[in-house]
Design a protein around this nucleic acid. Structure first.
Length: 419
RNA sequence: GUGGACGUAGCUCAGAUGGUAGAGCUCCAGGUUGUGGCCCUGGUGGUCGCGGGUUCGAGUCCCGUCGUUCACCCCA
């Protein structure tokens, strides 16, 4: 009988890593608050239709990467593969269009995709994300991008670059897609098998194909930037200007098309060179048609998601100095263990982080643990020479000792803490 | 879904040409019966991923399988 291991593509965060993760999330939360974003929590699973309609039937995510199952009521449910559609669903369901627009939300949640794991890619991964729903103004695009840039700066994510593109909208994209399709059909013989399929399904996807022959063809293909309608062009120019004002240096990248169908106009991605093949740490864009697509009123929105695992991989490592407890209570006699236990409870109640031997160690062993735990003070209980009611308080760095009435210990520790 | 590399104690790894398992770290205990993270000594801990095969004999060779990992694909 072999022991059970964590499922493929998942991982455990042991205390040191969990503490680092908490630090990242706390840093992000402060930043979100500064920008006026409030946290939203949505379910881990949704009706399958939300993603099929929202993310797009033609996307890889929907076609082959979703964890979909029937529950006991024969409902088709799917573990959330991405964060935007659920937040939009909640926006519609709770009538958030009655709030001041745009509604600015953030989330920290696990995402599930059935993929082959590799560096920086998991079947359950965590994303930090924001969505600003209800305004189509370029300032909103710029704000969310600036926010993500600020987050990477605050976390010291190494060697990040910002790539941006515009995907056009319902007014100009359809005509452009047809033009692109026509061009690619003419060069069909030079394309790889995948791209020949994409040709019919979604020719835009060929732009991020890595096959050399395809890249050569796409280099010569008509570019969306040259076929944007006036509104889209103007919007994109304003976003670029504002993003630059925020101190970022966006690089235009006509290959940046992203694999979710809901994107319109602005798309962007931050990548880090230290990551390997999966270089994108965070990315997103505008999705002005999504809410209508999932059955709500036509409502513009823009947002991004950023992968916690990839952030952790690309952060310049900051050693977290896990502090030791304030006190370690040591019993010097077996019949003192109960009062040691009670004393530890008393100290914890007074707000001091307190450890106590739970393994039946000898006094020497307990003191050794106190040292290894880097406790500031050891509290010695049950010494023969102590007067009743007294314990001995020893500083673990200096070694200085004093005998204190047990009942007065919290006050004495507080006083020492003041010094 | 495709391809490459790898799978020996909790962790990092050693085990030439097949002969029946080791180190360091961790953990635990001792170092004169009641006192510190270092040091010293000892100890716990392994169906050598799993299943077949070849062989008198396999951790070492072959096949399969599962897992890890890197890349493709796609994305965070």
């Amino acid at each position: 009988m072999s022991a059970i291991k964590a499922p493929k593509g998942t991982y455990d965060l042991l205390p040191d890593d969990a503490a680092r993760r908490a630090h990242v999330v706390a840093t992000a939360a402060r930043l979100f608050a500064a920008y006026g974003y409030r946290r939203v929590v949505t379910p881990e699973f949704e009706e399958t239709g939300l993603f099929a309609r929202g993310v797009g039937e033609a996307t890889d995510i929907v076609r082959k990467e979703m964890y979909t199952f029937l529950d006991k009521g024969e409902r088709s449910l799917t573990l959330r593969p991405e964060g935007t559609a659920p937040v939009c669903r909640a926006y519609v369901e709770h009538g958030l269009h009655t709030w001041p627009q745009p509604v600015k939300l953030w989330y920290y949640a696990p995402m599930f995709r059935y993929e082959r794991p590799q560096a920086g890619r998991f079947r359950q991964h965590y994303q930090l994300g924001v969505e600003a729903i209800g305004s189509s103004r370029p300032e909103v695009d710029a704000e969310v991008i600036a926010l993500l840039g600020a987050l990477f700066e605050a976390l010291e994510v190494a060697d990040v670059r910002l790539k941006m593109n515009s995907m056009g909208d319902a007014a100009c994209r359809p005509a452009y897609v047809e033009r692109l399709r026509g061009f690619l059909r003419g060069r069909r013989e030079e394309l790889c098998g995948d791209c020949r399929e994409r040709l019919e399904l979604n020719p835009l996807r060929s732009f991020d194909c890595k096959v050399a022959s395809c890249r050569a063809v796409l280099d010569e293909a008509p570019r969306i930037a040259d076929h944007l309608c006036d509104d889209c062009r103007s919007h994109f120019e304003q976003v670029l200007e504002l993003v630059s004002l925020a101190g970022l240096r966006p690089e235009l990248d006509f290959r940046l098309v992203r694999g979710l169908d809901y994107y319109t106009r602005t798309t962007f991605e931050f990548s880090s060179d230290v990551l390997g093949a999966q270089s994108g740490v965070g990315g997103g864009g505008r999705y002005d048609g999504l809410i209508e697509q999932i059955g709500g009123p036509a409502t513009p929105g823009v947002g991004w998601g950023a992968g916690l695992e990839r952030m952790a991989l690309s952060m310049r490592t900051l050693p977290l100095p896990a502090p030791g407890p304030d006190a370690f209570v040591v019993s010097f006699a077996d019949d003192a263990r109960a009062s040691a236990f009670a004393l530890a409870q008393q100290l914890r109640g007074a707000g001091f982080t307190t450890e106590l031997d739970l393994a039946g160690r000898s006094p020497k062993g307990q003191l050794k643990q106190a040292g290894r735990s880097r406790a500031r003070y050891a509290v010695l209980v049950g010494l023969d020479e102590l007067a009743t009611g007294f314990v001995r308080l020893r500083s673990m760095d200096g070694g200085g000792e004093e005998d204190v009435l047990a009942a007065a210990l919290p006050a004495r520790l507080a006083a020492l803490h003041e010094e």
